[in-house]
């Protein structure tokens, strides 16, 4: 379903997190922070650069906070990111086009 033909009605204010911050094709950087206790962003992609392949809809509760019992709150988008495997693993022996696809929360991403 595409809404390209439709113009949004002016004057609507979106709540926090309703509009995705990043879009397919954009370059983003995964934050290089190292929380303890619980996380859903693997160590091997921290600080890496990625390309947004898709915006996952609908936005969802922050899953790291969910781990501590927070079942509600502001919802944010998750993004399916693409990262070449040779950028993750020094000396990667496979094809240069081999890549990782992974979902990461908006709260972990910054514009490049």
């Amino acid at each position: 379903m595409t809404t390209n033909e439709l113009m949004p009605i002016p004057g609507i204010v979106k709540a926090d997190g309703e509009a995705p911050q990043f879009h397919p094709g954009e370059c983003v950087v995964i934050s290089a922070r190292f929380p303890i206790g619980h996380y859903r962003v693997p160590l091997y992609i921290r600080g890496k650069t990625a390309v947004v392949e898709a915006v996952i809809e609908p936005p969802a509760v922050n899953n790291e906070e969910e781990g501590f019992g927070r079942n509600a709150g502001t919802k944010r988008h998750y993004y399916r990111l693409a990262i070449p495997l040779r950028e993750l693993w020094p000396g990667y022996a496979g094809s240069a086009s081999d890549g990782l696809r992974i979902e990461v929360s908006e709260s972990w991403l910054e514009s490049r």
């Binding site: 998750y78 399916r80 496979g94 086009s97 081999d98 696809r101 992974i102």
Partner: peptide, 15 residues
Amino acid sequence: EEDVEIRVSDSTAAV
């Protein structure tokens, strides 16, 4: 084959 791209999808969220 070398000319085939491999995509590894690592599930971390609700997908």
